[in-house]
Design a protein around this nucleic acid. Sequence first.
DNA 1: CATAGTTATTCGGATAATCGGATAACTAGG
DNA 2: CCTAGTTATCCGATTATCCGAATAACTATG
Lengths: 111, 111
Amino acid sequence: MDTKGLENETTLLHERICSALGDPKRILLLYVLNEKPRCVNDLVDCLKSPQSTISRHLAILREKNLVNAERQGMNVIYSISDPRVIESLDILRAILRDQLQEQTQILNNTL
Amino acid sequence: MDTKGLENETTLLHERICSALGDPKRILLLYVLNEKPRCVNDLVDCLKSPQSTISRHLAILREKNLVNAERQGMNVIYSISDPRVIESLDILRAILRDQLQEQTQILNNTL
DNA sequence: CATAGTTATTCGGATAATCGGATAACTAGG
DNA sequence: CCTAGTTATCCGATTATCCGAATAACTATG
C-alpha cells in the first residue's frame, strides 16, 4: 500500500486539525461557540478559566482556521468557521456513548 | 447555558477518544488498519517505525477501544473496532482539503 | 490624551507525551 | 526444554503542552 502519500496526509491532518482537538477545553470551546458566537469575556465566564488561558486556546483554534474572529468595537466575537467540525465530534461522541452503554451492560450482566 | 454537563461530556470525550487521535502515527495506524486487519510486524513495516513505538501506540488505541487485538498463533491481529472513527476523521480530512484549496485559491488570485 | 474595558502575548515552571533501545513475556516448532 | 519469532513493557532522555500571573496592545469614551 502507498503508505507514503497516506503518511503525508495524516501528518498534515494532525498538524492542521486534530492537534487542535487534543485539549478538552478547546473541544468545549467549539461546542459552546456552536450554540452561538461569543466574545472572549463571555467564554471566560462560560468556561470559568483565566482570560489568558481562554485567549491562548482561541489563538490555537484560530491558527487552525476552526473559528473566526471578528472585531466588534471593544469585543472580538468568535464563531465556528466550519460546522463539520461539530459533525465530526458528534460522531466521536456517539462512539463514546455506545462504549459507555456497552460497559454498563457488561456490568449489569455480571451482577 | 448548562456548561456543567457539557463540560463533563467533553472532558470524557477527550480522555476516552480524542486524546487517542492526538498523534499522527496513531491516525495513520487507524487508516492502515481500516484497509485491512494486520499484525504488529506488518504495521512496523508499514509505518517504518521501531516495534516498541508501534506497540505502544497500539496499546493506547486499544485502551480507548478504537482497535481490537486478536491473537492468532504467534501474531496479534489488530483491526478497527468502530468504522465511525474513520468516518469522523474523513470529515476532518474534507475540512483540511477545503482549507488547502482555499489557500491555493488566494495564492492564485494574488499572482 | 487619559482612562477603563477588552483581548493578545510573554514568561517561567510544571506536567505530560513521545521516542527508541533494552528487556521481558508469550507462542509455536524442533 | 530450547530456540526463534513475535509482541508488550520498562526505562531514561528529550520534547511538547499547558497553566496562570503579569504585561502589552488595542479600542472606545469622556
